[in-house]
């Protein structure tokens, strides 16, 4: 079993095709699979549907795939950071399916757990419920949401061993575990691949069974909103 690949391009070899469905980890620009996104840009594959909480910013993260017009449809909860997104959406070039953030996360988790649908109160009485089956449980209304089953998952972790056992760092975990679980093939990029046995088995966040291909590389890790306090305030 060798999961380690030499580059993002090699790790994606044989997996990409037009009109495919990709689940991506990350929240804003935090914990996004930068290297795999760059390789998908280079591949030129088009008409992609992407399930991701956000769509990067202009010129960075998934925003790069907008600039090259490779995305056909986004499934997201918030896309406010991106002027090119709005331009393509308003001109009808890009489809958008808004999902409440927790519904999106749970749809990914459910898909990865073999659950094709679940009922939730989120969105009842709103446009999100339009066209969805609803059901009463204990006198309260719930709507049916479907699990996400993606062709591939692209995710980013902090460290993984060569079997794919992964740990994340701080809030960079976010959508990465559920996104990793819901793809037929999961490709993970990490800051460091470490020898098996060097991570405490009790501290693994995502077991290697979910990770099929693994690469290591340098990440820019751009900060979207740099907010600080002055030391004098301490």
């Amino acid at each position: 079993m060798n999961k380690i690949y030499g580059s993002a391009k090699e790790a994606l070899d044989g997996l990409l095709h037009d009109d495919m469905f990709i689940a991506a980890g990350g929240f804003g620009l935090c914990g996004i699979p930068e290297l795999l996104i760059d390789a998908i840009v280079e591949s030129g594959v088009k008409d992609i549907t992407v399930a991701s909480n956000n769509c990067g910013v202009d010129g960075f993260g998934l925003g790069k795939l907008l600039d090259t017009k490779q995305i056909k449809k986004m499934m997201s909860s918030y896309v406010g950071e991106n002027a090119e997104f709005m331009r393509q959406y308003l001109s009808g070039e890009l489809e958008l399916e808004f999902n409440p953030q927790g519904t999106l996360a749970e749809r990914m988790r459910a898909g990865g757990h073999g659950i094709p649908g679940f009922y939730t109160k989120t969105g009842v009485g709103t446009v999100i419920a339009d066209g969805k089956e609803s059901k009463m449980f204990n006198g309260e209304e719930y709507i049916l949401e479907e699990g996400i089953f993606a062709d591939i998952s692209i995710v980013k972790a902090w460290k993984a061993d060569d079997t794919g056992n992964a740990i994340f760092r701080k809030t960079a975990r976010n959508f990465n575990p559920p996104a990793a679980m819901c793809g037929k093939v999961c490709i993970m990029e990490v800051e460091e691949i470490v020898p098996r046995g060097s991570l405490d088995p009790d501290h693994i966040h995502l077991p290697g069974i979910y990770v099929h291909r693994l690469i290591q590389g340098d990440h820019e890790k751009r900060i979207e909103q740099r907010t600080v306090r002055k030391r004098e305030e301490a």
Binding site: L29, C30, E106, M108, R173, R222, R226
Partner: peptide, 25 residues
């Protein structure tokens, strides 16, 4: 500032002694 540590408004923040982290689901 730590790019791996942000709030839901994407602002850089800090952790406390009680802090725990988990995934979005």
């Amino acid at each position: 500032e730590d790019p791996d540590l942000i709030n839901a408004g994407k602002q850089t923040i800090t952790e406390l002694s009680r802090t725990s982290y988990f995934d979005s689901a």
